[in-house]
Design a protein around this nucleic acid. Structure first.
Lengths: 141, 141
DNA sequence: GGACATCGTTAGCATGGCTAACAATGGGAG
DNA sequence: CTCCCATTGTTAGCCATGCTAACGATGTCC
C-alpha cells in the first residue's frame, strides 16, 4: 500500500503548505480586495498581461466568472481591458501601475510576516530550508 | 531596503507554496464539494469536533458564513450538528464517518499527485526536501 | 462566401462572503 | 432570586463569486 517515504513527505509538505498559506492569508485583510481579485491581479503582475481565457485557466475558474472579476478590478482602476490588436475577439488584460503597487504592498506584508517567523530559526536551519525551497521550486515548475 | 537572504527565501517559499497548492487543487474537482465546504470538513476531520465559532475562526470567516457552510455539509450527510451538553447555546460540529471517508479520498488524490512529482527527484534531493519540510513544519506550528 | 471554430459576454441560478439584528442561554451583582 | 449583561448561534438581506446555457462578434478555412 502507499506508505513509502516519498508519500509521507508529500503528505507532510501538503499539510505544511496549507498551514503556511492560511497563516499568511491573514495579512490580506488590509488590502481591501477579495481573495479572487487579489489572486487574479497577482497573475497579471507576475505572469504579465493575459487573455481572459488564459487568466481564467490560471485561476481555475470558468471564463464568465473571470469576466466579472475583471469587471471589478477595472472599476477599481487596478487593471485595464483592451481589445487585442490582431484579433478583435480576444482581449488583453493588464495590471495598471496602481494595481502593481497594491499587489506588491500586500505581497510585502505576507513576506514580512513569513520573514519574521524564519528569523527564529538557527542559521543552519535556514540554510537547509533554502535548499528545500530550491527543490520545491523545481517540483512545482 | 529589506533584501536580506532570509527575506529572499521567505519570498521564494511563499511563491512556491502558492504554486504547489494551485497544482494540487485540480485534484479536488472529483470530490463534488466546493472549496469552502472541503476546507471546513478538513478542519473537522483533522482537528476534531469544533464549536461554530471555533470553526469560523479556523477558516477565517464570520460565524454566519460558517453556519451556512455547515448547513450544506449537514444536508450532504458529511457532518453532524448537535447541542453541546454543558452549554446549550453552543453547538458541537463533527464529521460523520462518510465525511471522513470523502475527505480522506480527496486528500489521497492530492498526495498521490504530489508523490508522483516527488518521484522524479534524485534520492539526495528527496532527503534535502524532507529536511526542509521538517523545518517548515516548525515554522508553521 | 458560407459553415464552423473561437472568444468573450449576458442571463440566471446556487453558494459563499459580509453586517445588522435577533433569540436563546449562561453568569454574575445585588 | 432577579435582573442585567455577555456569549453563542441563527436569520435577514445585501453583494461577490462559482457554475451552465445561450448568444454575438470575430476569425478561419474550404
Amino acid at each position: 500500500m502507499g506508505e513509502g517515504p516519498t508519500e509521507q513527505v508529500a503528505a507532510r509538505l501538503h499539510s505544511a503548505s496549507i498551514r503556511l498559506l492560511r497563516l499568511l492569508r491573514r495579512e490580506d485583510d488590509s488590502s481591501g480586495l477579495s481573495a479572487p481579485r487579489l489572486s487574479a491581479l497577482s497573475v497579471l503582475v507576475f505572469a504579465g498581461p493575459q487573455s481572459l481565457a488564459g487568466l481564467a485557466a490560471a485561476e481555475q475558474v470558468r471564463p464568465p466568472t473571470m469576466s466579472r472579476i475583471v469587471d471589478g478590478l477595472v472599476e477599481a482602476g487596478l487593471v485595464t481591458r483592451e481589445a487585442k490588436p490582431g484579433d478583435r475577439r480576444s482581449v488583453r488584460i493588464a495590471a495598471t501601475e496602481e494595481g502593481r503597487r497594491l499587489l506588491e504592498a500586500g505581497r510585502e506584508r505576507r513576506v514580512r510576516a513569513l520573514t519574521s517567523r524564519l528569523a527564529r530559526l538557527a542559521e543552519s536551519e535556514r540554510r537547509a530550508l533554502t535548499r528545500g525551497v530550491e527543490i520545491l521550486e523545481q517540483v512545482v515548475r
